[in-house]
C-alpha cells in the first residue's frame, strides 16, 4: 500500500535464520488469490513455520511469541531468495511490517518490498548480529529507521549505520509515489525510443 515514509521507531521481531526463501514467507498454495488482499497474505505469512498441519500456532515460532512485536522484521542474510512471488512482500506488508532489516537481500524480493512500501534495510553482519543479541536479551529493544537521513539506529546501544537508497527511490518512498506513476509520464520517450530503433 502506498504510504509515506519518514522516521520509524519500533520494537523488532527477530528471525535469525539465513536463506529464508519466499516459499517459506508464503507457500505456493496461498498464491491462488486473484486480488491483492494483504490481510489474507499477512494471515498466512510464514504459514508452515507459524502453524502446524492442523492450523494450531506453533509456540516456538517467533510470530507466536508474545514477547516480540513491532513493525520491524530482522532476518538473517539472503532474505527472500527463490521465487519472484510478490505475494511474499504482500504478506510481510499485510502482517504489518514496514521495515525488514538484514545483511543481504535477494534481488527480486528486495524490489518487491520497495514496490509495496516495505523498506529493506541492509546493515553490516556485525550490526545485525549485535542487534539479534540485543533483542534476545531485551525484546523491548527499539530501532529507529530514519528514511530522509538514511540511517538505522539500535537505540539500546546508540550504534547507527547509513543504509543505501537511491535518490529516486527515496523521493518515491517519502512522497508515496510508485514506479508506474513515473513510467506513465514517459510515453513520449518510449515512443521516441521505438522510432529510433526501427
Amino acid at each position: 500500500m502506498k504510504q509515506k515514509f519518514d522516521i520509524i521507531e519500533s520494537t523488532c521481531v527477530p528471525l535469525p535464520l539465513e536463506n529464508v526463501d519466499t516459499d517459506q514467507i508464503i507457500p505456493a498454495r496461498f498464491l491462488k488469490a486473484t486480488t491483492r488482499d494483504e490481510k489474507f497474505f499477512g494471515d498466512n505469512l510464514f504459514r508452515d513455520w507459524r502453524y502446524d498441519a492442523d492450523g494450531k500456532p506453533r509456540a516456538d515460532f517467533v510470530l507466536n511469541d508474545p514477547r516480540y512485536g513491532g513493525c520491524i522484521l530482522v532476518a538473517g542474510k539472503n532474505f527472500g531468495s527463490g521465487s519472484s512471488r510478490e505475494h511474499a512482500a504482500w504478506a510481510i506488508a499485510g502482517y504489518g511490517f514496514r521495515v525488514v532489516i538484514s545483511s543481504f537481500f535477494a534481488d527480486i524480493h528486495k524490489n518487491n518490498e520497495l514496490n509495496n512500501f516495505v523498506l529493506p534495510v541492509v546493515v553490516s553482519e556485525d550490526f545485525l548480529s549485535e542487534l539479534f543479541a540485543g533483542i534476545a536479551a531485551d525484546p523491548s529493544l527499539r530501532v529507529r529507521v530514519d528514511v530522509p537521513a538514511q540511517t538505522v539506529t539500535n537505540l539500546a546501544t546508540g550504534r547507527s549505520e547509513r543504509f543505501e537508497l537511491n535518490g529516486y527511490k527515496k523521493y518515491c518512498l517519502t512522497h508515496a509515489l510508485d514506479d508506474i506513476d513515473y513510467l506513465l509520464e514517459q510515453k513520449d520517450k518510449i515512443e521516441a525510443f521505438e522510432r529510433e530503433r526501427q
Binding site: S84, E86, H87, A89, N111, N112, L183, L184, Q186, I190
Partner: peptide, 15 residues
Amino acid sequence: GIGTSEVEMVLASQC
C-alpha cells in the same frame, strides 16, 4: 524474473 508490480509496469509502459 520480476514481481507483479513490475509486470504492471511493463503492461502499462513496455518498460
